[in-house]
Write a protein that binds this DNA or RNA. Structure first.
Lengths: 361, 361
DNA sequence: ATCATATGTTGCAGTCAACAACAAATCTCG
DNA sequence: CGAGATTTGTTGTTGACTGCAACATATGAT
């Protein structure tokens, strides 16, 4: 495998074509010529090349309704490159085997009942682990170089998850944090493709955030939103600090809590209403710091933060308004994700495909 | 100019060679062969090509002391590509004309006395504006797409500085914020080259921060450190918010203030000592939020924050320890910059050269 | 049925980088 | 002091890739 020379050009173009098809679905050769800015003949050669190596399938003649010879349609062959994606939660593990182009080929979910997630993953990926080119695990917490430095939810600190998974399954794993994975998912397969700096907030047992800049996960990604200190010297947090957002909001922790509180507040329960409002304000203040520090143009409220945001949009916005400069707010959209709780799994898969495509270059 | 094809390969290699020489100084062809991973003959062709177009000068035979034919030394020709760099401060404008390779060819400084910086820049760059391939202005504040969205120091809001500079000088300008420029400078020409995520704090009339990730300025860069809210509902700030770091620390604003306070504290002035300690704690708390949100591995205290940090390292560190997770702290180095107050100007120039090299690709 | 239109296909030309053989310049060791 | 070892520049050749232009093909429009 030559690392330089004209062959590199070919590799890059091949990778670009595969990426294009993976991201934007089946396309005619004419569209590919336009999209990649290459010559017709070059696209023809590339497509033939990729068809021979099995990545791409070409189906003839699709009548467009306009004049001219119909263009041949190229599309990904899902089984040509598969990615194993896994999402670890407190009480369950979700698994998907995704094919090139994004089609989900297999899918499973395992309740943990106190088992180690690594064992559950090893069991569920047993049949497919070797077939997948990449394997990616999304885990809630602070991830650094494959290792989980800190996870409130799982009670882990400094666990080398990539190594444990490798030992249990006999293959390499990439580890990302749930929020960053979800951000990647929403950007690539969701509704946030126009965002140049996307901040995804994930509410699970803990609160984390992930940033996607120009479509790529921010290096050293995960933001421990739950451990932004909103009340200096406030309540003691499990992490050892004081006044963390997580500690101050500890009355909540699940979507159901929010729904109960919202229901109670609607029925005139003043304490519930105040609790919701205060939580919204705390969240808005923590966000203020994150927005000032990172300057996103879009924020998605995921996990149970979705419910909290929908119930408390006004206090969130006003607290945000009190803690960020007008210009940063003016270009900022606040929304909820469109992939629901599939975002992290989708994003984990897309992270894998990014590695696959990079590996072709 | 073909955008694809084999010529692109050549362009990329040419650019890589120039970048290598610009960043690491004169090198032998043998070293270039090693660094770029290309063949000897290819390097020879590239060097000849670049020598002919005037970017590179080759001087023969440098005896290394070891066996073998002495390698020819290649070095940048400064005048082959010049960059105009300008730093705007509250009361003065600094200018440098920098040649390829980093040599400063001209330099000037103009006191403003209330004049518009744009006029001063137009005057000082009159002779050289057309000769420079790129022109970059560093300005303290929140910069977005060439426009200064907010600057406490200069009292600007929404000023399209790039357009104003273009109108006054008859050429295009790139606008960056001072802190990000200084971060780029410290990374490329300073001491922080090993940092993968460098956070530079700039203390001028306002407080800003800039982030350099893997050697590249963070997109949408500047962080308004001074407007991180450290005391919700605290003192009113000029920006309209309450409890901003800048407002809470308003007793300071210049290095001399710190020196006076340090002197007074040393002579037993309890109020001065308390003020310093409180400022250090406020800074540490604001930093806690920024560190949690961005996860740097190195922080440089620039401008008068250098003096504050040197005087109050202990409270800064302890406040930081109270507001960030241990893992984020453990890999974090706190230091002061090595380029002094030259960092921003250096970084502005390097930003220009990055554009020059990108333009060659 | 014929022409216009859009697209795939084929052969050719230009360019590039790797390779290998050779030339040049220095050091080392006897 | 000289021969071999060593490192590096140079040259000619080769294989590969993309762009281009001419041609072939398949459709719609008249």
């Amino acid at each position: 495998m030559a690392r330089t020379g004209t062959e590199e050009l070919r590799r890059r173009n091949r990778a670009a074509l595969v990426e294009q098809l993976h991201r934007h679905g089946p396309q005619t050769r004419a569209e590919l010529t336009e999209a990649l800015g290459l010559n017709r003949s070059t696209i023809g050669a590339l497509a033939a090349d990729l068809a021979e190596s099995g990545y791409v399938q070409e189906t003839t003649g699709r009548s467009t309704g306009s004049a001219g010879r119909p263009s041949t349609l190229a599309e990904c062959v899902p089984k040509a490159a598969m990615v194993t994606a896994v999402e670890i939660r407190v009480d369950l593990v979700r698994f998907a085997l995704v094919g090139l182009g994004g089609e989900v080929l297999e899918r499973a979910e395992t309740e943990l009942d106190g088992d180690d997630p690594v064992d559950a993953i090893a069991a569920v990926t047993r049949g497919t682990a070797r077939d997948a080119l990449e394997a990616v695990a999304a885990v809630p917490g602070l991830v650094d170089a494959g290792s989980v430095a800190h996870s409130t939810e799982l009670g882990w600190a400094g666990r080398d998850l990539a190594a444990d998974l490798a030992a249990a399954t006999g293959r390499e794993w990439q580890v990302v944090d749930t929020a960053t994975a979800a951000a990647v998912g929403e950007w690539s397969r969701g509704d946030a493709h126009e965002s140049t700096k996307l901040l995804y907030l994930h509410g699970g047992r803990g609160l984390t955030a992930g940033l996607v800049v120009d479509g790529r996960a921010q290096r050293g990604g995960s933001i421990q939103l739950g451990h932004i200190v909103v009340q200096p010297g406030g309540r003691e947090c499990a992490c050892g600090l004081r006044g963390c957002l997580e500690a101050e909001m500890e009355v909540f922790g699940y979507a159901e809590d929010i729904e109960h509180a919202t229901l109670a507040a609607g029925m005139g329960d003043g304490a519930a209403r105040d609790g919701l409002r205060r939580s919204g304000e705390d969240l808005g203040r923590a966000l203020g710091a994150v927005v000032t520090a990172t300057g996103p143009d879009e924020i998605l409220f995921g996990g149970w933060l979705r419910e909290l945001y929908l119930a408390t949009a006004a206090p969130v916005r006003s607290a945000l308004a009190e803690t960020t400069l007008p210009h940063l707010r003016s270009r900022l959209r606040l929304r909820t994700p469109v992939l629901g709780d599939e975002g992290a799994l989708t994003g984990a898969a897309e992270t894998g495909f990014a590695a696959v495509v990079d590996g072709m270059r």
